[in-house]
Write a protein that binds this DNA or RNA. Structure first.
Lengths: 240, 240
DNA sequence: CGAATAGTGTCTTTTAGACAATATACG
DNA sequence: CGTATATTGTCTAAAAGACACTATTCG
């Protein structure tokens, strides 16, 4: 190792550093479709485009803590589950300056999603349409409430595509689906969540069997109310 | 948004920034066991402990490019496949200064692994022992060639544990296993790789059926040579 | 031929898909 | 009772596990 390398390793303060940021994918389901909360940029660059909420990471703040803070500041949400997704580090991803950004995924129940949209009127709930491009995933379309196709700022479309892909991949070995549902839910609601994330329809008896066999579901004996037909039993998620 | 927030968003150069680094998990198989290449630290902090090769990310260098450069500089490897693993951003993960580090996984064939170990004598090939702690993964043990348990520097044991977990998770829907094998390989070698990563033994006929049915394998008609018994046919990996 | 491992056949068990029958609510 | 959906039963098809049998090479 040369002297220069040595110094470089030991005194990186002598070198210019990238800024470090976090970006949040706030994901919920609306009308049975995956939906994300976006902020409209009104400044250069990408003025007029829609962006994921984000913020810089403080020098005394872990990545996770920064994500939690941004969640609080920009969406008024406390204590939701944050999961790191991927870190985007292309040199030119932000034309203003070099920013390395760790993307986080936050899964919201319908209640939490609506509360955030109400508390922060600047947040636009935009539906995500995932064209079925095979297992590999692919670019996603983002639609405004008026069904207009939105253009996202920076590389945020890539971030969103990765979020959807990750979600699909984790669907049947993790508890992500339950993070999108309220405490009590019916098996049909659970199946709807799976179908929305996968973008396919599933066989009902097989789905029930499979999920019940996992041992993650506890029947409550209570039933949904206010339906015009036979009410479904309510279940609760319970760690295996 | 307050004036302060506005300035903070627009002029982060006024704030202290974390350093950004990459750390590499250089993974191969030796004697049928997962093995990682480590560097011994001889400076404070964690002097005497073993660490993953790593380096700082330049201001004009993407994360991926930095990982490729470190791979070249510290392991003399060109053009291997790099896959981003996770970004570690705890405040105190390095006592010297705030460093956010993106961990990358590099899968090496036995040939490439040995070449790196020979080209860079400082690199120690350390066997990874993954105690079977269920699907969730867990801490891993790292053993020197003399079978002594090594203590890793910083949070590098966490990084390694995550690498093994990721590897296991991707094993049967991606081509990771083939990245650890030479161009031509036997089905038994492929099964050995799977067993080493999973830490379990697999059923031979079922394994063959499953892998052949994926359509990723092309029989070459050639056979291994120099065995004291019936030679196995050589296969090649071929995208589906 | 004996030893060692490659490769295959087949039976059983498990899991998933299809489809329909039964059950229960509301009005 | 009619309608709409929940829940279950059952048949079939596909996948995985177990185990043993045959095949091929070396010396």
């Amino acid at each position: 190792m040369t002297e220069t390398d040595f110094l470089k390793d030991y005194d990186p303060s002598a070198f210019q550093r990238p800024s470090v940021a976090v970006d949040l994918v706030l994901l919920g389901l609306r009308d049975g479709r995956p939906t994300v909360l976006l902020l409209r940029r009104d400044q250069h660059p990408h003025a007029g485009r829609w962006a994921l909420p984000g913020g810089f990471v403080g020098i005394d703040e872990s990545l996770d803590a920064a994500a939690a803070r941004v969640l609080r500041e920009k969406a008024a949400i406390e204590g939701a589950r944050l999961e790191q997704l991927y870190t985007f580090g292309a040199v030119d991803r932000d034309p203003r300056m070099r920013i390395v950004s760790a993307a986080y995924l936050v899964l919201l129940t319908e209640t939490a999603f609506d509360a955030a949209a109400r508390a922060m009127p600047a947040l636009l709930p935009a539906a995500i349409h995932v064209p079925w491009a095979g297992e590999a995933g692919g670019p996603v379309n983002v639609l405004s409430p008026d069904n207009e196709k939105l253009t996202l700022a920076f590389d945020h479309a890539d971030i969103l595509a990765m979020a959807m892909l990750r979600l699909r991949g984790k669907l049947d070995y993790s508890d992500v689906a339950f993070a999108l549902l309220p405490e009590l839910f019916t098996l049909r609601q659970l199946q709807d969540v799976h179908e929305a994330i996968l973008g396919t329809s599933l066989n009902k008896p097989a789905f029930r069997r499979r999920l019940l066999d996992k041992g993650w579901l506890a029947a409550t004996g209570a039933y949904e109310a206010g339906t015009a037909y036979r009410p479904a039993e309510l279940y609760r998620f319970q760690r295996p």
